[in-house]
Design a protein around this nucleic acid. Structure first.
Lengths: 207, 207
DNA sequence: CGCACCCTAGTACGGCCGTACTAGTGACAT
DNA sequence: ATGTCACTAGTACGGCCGTACTAGGGTGCG
């Protein structure tokens, strides 16, 4: 039977151990390996005689997102489930991660019981997104879709002209969105908008 | 003997439980209570017959910092140790928290063993700052002190003129620092500098 | 239908931004 | 003492920013 192997990668030891205990409790019999880096997890995955059945990965390692490496991981371990856990709970981050072909996104504020249920659902083949406050569509606090896009591009340091090209609209229109965005956030500069956006969980310090 | 009470408050259940297990293991006999909000922790603290000997508090609850409430907590529970745990590890955040009169700041990436040692040291009356990479004085990656100050003020959305007033120097000099800062960060706009600073852990999305 | 809201586009204007120069001071190391 | 580096101050200039107007099209609601 249980030649299942689950690999956990998280650079927060307490959370990592908690996750391990949790999985070993709900899935007795499966082999659980842990690592504190994505590379460590990969080393374990490639060295084993059996391929891992599931990855449980933190999205951020030392402030760096592993989002760019998820697609490659998906290709290399086509049969394995990939579960991403993260502090983030904003729509943009979740969408970006799910678009990489992972099986689940679970916020770290979710209770162990809920995490267990989610992992079980993933094992059954389900695609799962689990956040503590289940509001899948409140993209932002009063921000329109366009304003949210503009905010993300502003956070990347793009000028109005560059944003216009990126969105395929006129620079004049971009200005409208920028002004409306500032009004919505209660700020009056790009820099302030970025900090406000980060602290409000609207955007993530990507890359 | 052990009429000691330790109260843990963290909105991440897995981490919270891990912390509880850790403390119960190294300090068998103490009463450990947990809450998922600061208010919950306060309710426990005020209702108990004995005053808690130690608080272990997450700095962020649902993106909101409890920094503003630390000083009041310090006043109300003068005899208790206050330990702040957080994802953050930047100098600005740590300094801000320590200035509130807490006994310790521990980053969540620190190993359970190190956390245990730190908590023990706090119980002995020590002031402890524990981060995974123990470099208490590399304020920033190549940024001078002035550049770091300027970056923080930029993140607050302040103009060069406002920064000049805040630092007591000429707006012209501020420009010099801004340009140098951009060069150091490899960006060319204030907004990009903020995201870069956040993702590099140089600044925290305060308030 | 009228109203609200979002997105679009443009003009005008004052102001701030960011860079490139020059130039002086103090600290610290070789 | 010579060089390096951080910090200070100023001038000049092109460009981008943010706001305030006008103005039209689309969608959904009562």
């Amino acid at each position: 039977m249980g030649n299942e192997t689950i690999i956990i990668a998280d650079d927060h030891p307490v959370f990592r151990d908690g996750l391990r205990t949790l999985i070993e409790h709900i899935h007795p019999g499966v082999a659980v390996a842990t690592a504190d880096t994505l590379d460590g997890a990969l080393a374990i995955a490639r060295s084993g005689t059996v391929r891992p059945s599931m990855f449980v990965l933190d999205l951020f390692f030392a402030h760096r997102s592993i989002k760019d490496q998820l697609a490659a991981l998906r290709r290399e371990f086509g049969r394995a489930s990939i579960v991403v856990v993260s502090m983030a709970d904003d729509r943009a981050t979740i969408d970006g991660v799910m678009a990489c072909g992972v099986n689940a996104f679970i916020n770290k504020s979710v209770t162990p019981h809920e995490i267990g249920k989610a992992l079980e659902a993933v094992r059954q083949g389900e695609i799962v997104v689990k956040v503590p406050t289940p509001d899948a569509d409140d993209t932002a606090a009063g921000l329109s879709e366009r304003q949210h896009s503009v905010l993300q591009l502003i956070a990347q340091g793009q000028t109005n002209k560059e944003i216009a090209i990126a969105l395929g609209i006129s620079p004049f229109t971009v200005r409208i969105h920028v002004s409306a965005l500032f009004r919505a956030l209660g700020v009056s500069s790009r820099a302030a908008a970025v900090t406000k956006g980060v602290s409000a969980g609207l955007i993530a310090p990507a890359h």
